[in-house]
Nucleic acid binder design. Structure first.
Lengths: 108, 108
DNA sequence: CAGCATCCCCCGGGATACTG
DNA sequence: CAGTATCCCGGGGGATGCTG
């Protein structure tokens, strides 16, 4: 039994899964793995996510140390999101998951 | 955009993630990877899951073809849950995730 | 362009009690 | 022992509008 952010986890896998939980986090990480992205860019790419949720997820990912953002003091504002080392290291798991899904559900 | 079980997915990763979504599925799969388990056994091991939810998750995993169960016609009833080939092949992703979590959160 | 603030809906998941 | 049936709660996630 471990605890993180006031949440209880039965094991490390439980915790690991929770950090990429929900419909969007994995997808966001996957896109960021191909390079830094801006807010609007991410929203376009993921095609479907609402602005509110995208913000929430990016904040959570940042708080968990998986991504960081760079704010350029320009007008109009420009912000870029990027994977941290920790964020990059989770990618292999997502890659396997995607290939696995492609293998078994390619006909969708 | 793909569809499976009346649900829409933006990509295969989205679908793959969804199949192991929630607090328990990954943990269950991980335990089953070490060998077949009975219902009560799983409940004991996962320590915390309710009977209802365990049933729901096992049913979903079975419908998605990740596990199968064998019912032995005995009294009292005995049922064993086991990974399918498809279920086994998703394990490497879980393994990476767990090791990743252990690396970055070992001090919890 | 980035990102809060609200409102609302649905569903994952817990607790408890009951059956073959 | 392996489920089913209810009831209930919190939160993930969508829609829309407003601001620096």
């Amino acid at each position: 039994m471990l605890e993180y952010n006031n949440k209880k986890y039965v094991c490390h896998l439980d915790l690991g899964i929770d950090l990429i939980r929900g419909k969007w986090k994995a997808v966001i990480l996957c896109h960021l793995h191909r390079g830094p992205k801006r807010f609007l860019e991410l929203q376009r790419i993921t095609s479907g996510i609402s602005q509110k949720v995208l913000n929430e997820k990016l904040t959570e990912l940042e708080n968990d140390g998986l991504i960081f953002k760079t704010i350029y003091p320009e007008v109009p504002p420009r912000v870029e999101f990027e994977l941290t080392e920790k964020g990059k290291e989770i990618y292999p798991a997502l890659d396997i998951l995607e290939k696995w899904s492609l293998k078994y559900f390619s006909d969708l």
